[in-house]
């Protein structure tokens, strides 16, 4: 599918990369629909333009009072309805039903994460190896304990909490329970084709599985892109880092490899750096996003709605377990130090 091939590895002007097991079907539906829409529009369009030319008013030409026979149009009409029904029953409903009705079973060993959304951040609560979420209560909320975890609860010993930082395993079903603390938010992971409103007073589950190979490291590599320095806008590359070092003639580093923020923190600073690169003789640069996967908020939630995003990091299942164990150790050491 030529239309989608490019989208797989880069963000561009069409579908973003797709890294989940159910997302291909969604992309396929979008593709099929657009082919249908284009066909219909083209068909109508040809007929339309033909009429505009053939039946324009001119001397010696008058309109026909009798209506033209509607046989062909009735066929098209029926074909449209049949197509829509096929798309609905064969392509949309099954995908939606799977998405909604088939939560991962116990046997599939899903990872459950509680996601708390508030103005303007995402908080992730992991239950740890014991599989039970520690009790939370608003009265425990503090700057270091933003989900309000009751540390006295034995189940809370192996619980982890992060703000705007989400780690997930690939190849293993993930179940997220979404909460909203103040207003309606919406959890959206574009690269996983996941979107779910977070509504205060409700606890809404969603589930998906990330493709086994889609670890952050691999995805990062795939997303290296070459940009021409001619007319690049800083906004296009503001979240990127260099894939290699770029030095000027004297050997000083203009743009360091993998250095966050090296491209400048605003448009003015960015313009300067790009100019330095041009002055050093470069016509193009290789960049990749510093954090290729994001979780964003898709429902207006206030004046800083656009800033509400979390970084998503994916690991293989084993790497994830290792990471989790490390984090739990770190947390308990810190807690001990506190006491």
């Amino acid at each position: 599918m030529m239309l989608l091939a490019d989208a797989v590895s880069h963000y561009g002007n069409w579908l973003p990369p797709q890294l989940s097991t159910h997302g291909d079907k969604i992309d396929q539906l979008i593709f099929v629909l657009h082919v249908f829409m284009a066909a219909l529009f083209f068909g109508w369009g040809v007929y339309f333009v033909y009429c505009l030319v053939k039946f324009r008013a001119r001397s010696g030409h008058s309109a026909t009072y009798e209506p033209v026979k509607g046989g062909a149009s009735k066929m098209v009409e029926i074909a449209v309805i049949v197509f829509e029904l096929i798309v609905l029953f064969a392509l949309s409903m099954p995908v939606w039903a799977d998405y909604k009705n088939k939560p991962p079973t116990e046997a599939e060993n899903p990872l459950t994460v509680h996601v708390h959304s508030k103005q303007f951040e995402w908080q992730f609560h992991y239950c740890g190896p014991d599989g039970v979420f520690g009790r939370t209560d608003p009265k425990f909320i503090s700057t270091s304990n933003f989900i309000g975890l009751d540390e006295d609860d034995p189940h809370a010993k192996d619980d982890l909490q992060f703000v705007n930082d989400c780690h997930l395993p690939t190849g293993r079903p993930i179940r997220m329970e979404i909460f909203a603390r103040d207003v309606i938010h919406s959890l959206s992971i574009p690269t996983m084709r996941v979107k779910q409103d977070a509504i205060p007073g409700m606890r809404i589950p969603i589930w998906f599985t990330i493709n086994k190979d889609a670890t952050t490291a691999k995805v990062s590599e795939q997303m290296v892109q070459t940009f021409s320095l001619g007319r690049i806008s800083w906004y296009r590359i503001r979240h990127h880092v260099a894939a290699q070092d770029y030095k000027n003639k004297a050997g000083d580093i203009i743009l360091a490899k993998d250095k966050d923020g090296a491209l400048g923190s605003n448009a003015a600073a960015g313009k300067e750096i790009l100019q330095k690169l041009r002055d050093a003789g470069f016509t193009e640069i290789s960049l990749r996003p510093s954090n290729p996967l994001e979780i964003v908020c898709a429902q207006l939630c206030g004046n800083n709605h656009y800033t509400m995003k979390a970084q998503l990091k994916t690991h293989t299942a084993d790497e994830f377990e290792a990471w989790q164990a490390e984090e739990i150790k770190k947390k308990n050491t810190e807690l001990e130090i506190e006491f």
Binding site: Y11, N13, R236, H239, P292, Y306
Partner: peptide, 27 residues
């Protein structure tokens, strides 16, 4: 339509703040 396909969300004060938005913000 292209911005929507790329995933740019509505009601965004700065479309380039989100990574998938930055790529289509030029439109």
């Amino acid at each position: 339509f292209f911005q929507g396909m790329a995933g740019i969300l509505r009601r965004q004060y700065d479309q380039s703040y989100q990574l998938h938005g930055a790529s289509a913000q030029g439109l």
